[in-house]
């Protein structure tokens, strides 16, 4: 079986590079799609004037969604993902640099599957990314898109 691909929505170019590096280190064969902000993520999932919606959602093992994003923030993206039957089953892991209890509660209320505070220590951060990649890409299973449609 092919490895799932992984969608990373992260605005910080440094964190993009570091995240991809850490994920690739843990799961070499997985494809990592990187998007810059919330709007790009919505366009990727639902399509836009210039862009077709992603056709192979069931190839996505997980979405790593940063909470603080330009234009449309992570929690709003999460809300939209959960509001559509096309995407509401997708595993979403909220990633944040801050440690705000209110944000944590809100994320779970909106239906996040997981909530991870990026460690300040890069070694720990790398470990976090490795755990996420191993679990969501290798351990966890997501349904096939057609089975989601028929049920």
């Amino acid at each position: 079986m092919d490895e799932y691909s992984i969608l990373v929505v992260e605005d910080n170019p440094d964190d993009q590079v570091l995240t991809v590096r850490a994920l690739k280190k843990a799961s070499r064969k997985s494809q990592v799609i990187v998007l810059e902000d919330g709007q790009e993520a919505l366009d990727f999932l639902f399509g836009s004037d210039t862009q077709e919606p992603c056709k192979q959602l069931d190839q996505l093992g997980v979405i790593l969604l940063d909470v603080k994003l330009p234009r449309v923030n992570g929690l709003e993206v999460l809300k939209k993902i959960r509001a559509s039957t096309r995407t509401d089953w997708l595993p979403v892991v909220m990633i944040t640099s801050s440690d705000e209890p209110a944000e944590l509660v809100e994320a779970y209320r909106l239906g996040a599957n997981s909530y991870v505070t990026k460690s300040i220590d890069y070694r720990e951060f790398e470990e976090q990314m490795a755990v996420l990649a191993r679990y969501w890409l290798k351990v966890n299973k997501v349904p096939k898109a057609d089975s989601v449609r028929t049920l």
């Binding site: 910080n12 570091l18 590096r21 640099s97 300040i120 890069y122 951060f125 790398e126």
Partner: peptide, 21 residues
């Protein structure tokens, strides 16, 4: 304090991460 926690940490992790890289 939110912006401190979020915005100050990012460059730090980058420093740390690229240092390790």
């Amino acid at each position: 304090s939110y912006s401190v926690s979020h915005d100050l940490r990012q460059p730090l992790r980058a420093i740390e991460g690229f240092g390790q890289a």
